[in-house]
């Protein structure tokens, strides 16, 4: 058999599957988002960008979903990056039990969002929830909060859940980054009389650009796409307070039968993820050459 035929055969599954399930579908969504498609019956006329114009100018819930998505992503990343770095440094200090702590920090990553959602709804329940009950139990009843059931705290609650779920991943990447710092650099710093604290501050942390970059982009991806965790905790509420693009897409399409709008929101998400990911993958591939 010719070499090129064999090569084609080896690439066939990946190319066909990704071609259909990613690119054909994304193209289909883009096309559907430019049709009139309301109700269960199927397509109407071609309307061009009208659905997008409607979303961006007319639909304040869509805009709310977009800003909420950005706020949530921003807050989540601002907390997770330093926390992940802190965790990694604490593990790196090499105290006894470091393996156990590493497992503990990583454990939330193993939980499906469905299970995380279940747990956190229970944790945050205003009357019978773990957090408020503990607060009352230690005499801090004044600090109890309505958490996910109030529109001013629902996003905060989601940020806490996201941080819980994903900071282990940041820890992991930072830990790998810290471990790869060359010992000569540290020894040199030590010769200069640097304390442990100064060694981290002056040598280790400045070398964490690539891990930071990696964590930042992967977390952004997750923040954009996570659906189940939000859908099963706040459902986007109360009011519109925690509506995200991912939940609004589902709501518009499957609760309200406005399928073209749903496809349009889906395509907006596609563009957003492409904007995040293409520079990232390009840079990562570039660095490895």
């Amino acid at each position: 058999m010719k070499k090129s035929v064999q090569i084609a055969f080896f690439l066939l599954p990946a190319v066909v599957l990704v071609g259909i399930f990613v690119y054909y579908f994304a193209g289909w969504s883009a096309w559907a988002s430019m049709m009139k498609w309301e109700g269960l019956s199927g397509f109407g006329d071609f309307v061009g960008l009208q659905n997008y114009i409607h979303l961006f100018t007319d639909d304040f819930v869509f805009r709310k979903g977009l800003t909420n998505t950005l706020i949530l992503s921003g807050a989540f990343i601002l907390v997770t990056l330093p926390l992940g770095l802190l965790n990694a440094i604490l593990i790196d200090l090499g105290l006894k039990g470091k393996k156990a702590f590493r497992l503990i920090f990583l454990l939330p990553l193993s939980f499906s969002f469905v299970v995380s959602a279940t747990m956190w709804v229970w944790m945050f329940a205003p009357k019978t929830g773990t957090i408020n009950t503990i607060l009352r139990g230690i005499g801090l009843g004044a600090l109890t909060q309505p958490w996910l059931t109030s529109s001013s705290q629902s996003l905060l609650g989601l940020v806490i859940i996201y941080v819980w779920q994903f900071s282990g991943f940041a820890t992991l990447v930072y830990f790998a980054g810290i471990s790869s710092v060359r010992t000569e650099l540290l020894e040199a710093a030590e010769v200069d009389g640097a304390t442990t604290f100064q060694k981290y501050l002056r040598v280790v942390i400045p070398l964490q650009k690539i891990p930071t970059f990696t964590v930042l982009f992967l977390l952004l991806m997750y923040a954009l796409r996570v659906f189940d965790l939000v859908w099963l905790t706040t459902g986007g509420g109360p009011g519109y307070s925690s509506e995200l693009l991912a939940t609004y897409m589902w709501r518009v399409a499957f609760n309200r039968n406005q399928f073209a709008d749903g496809a349009a929101i889906g395509f907006v998400m596609f563009v957003l993820s492409a904007l995040i990911v293409i520079p990232f993958v390009a840079k990562m591939r570039g660095d490895s050459r």
Binding site: V18, F21, V22, Y23, Y24, F25, A26, W28, S29, A32, M221, L224, R225, F227, L245, A246, M249, W250, A253, F259, G262, A263, I265, G266, F267, M269, F270, L272, S273, A274, I276, V277, I278, F280, V281
Partner: peptide, 13 residues
């Protein structure tokens, strides 16, 4: 790049 695509954008098709 396909890994990073938000699943919502291809759900209906």
């Amino acid at each position: 790049v396909g890994f990073y695509i938000a699943p919502q954008s291809i759900l209906i098709p």
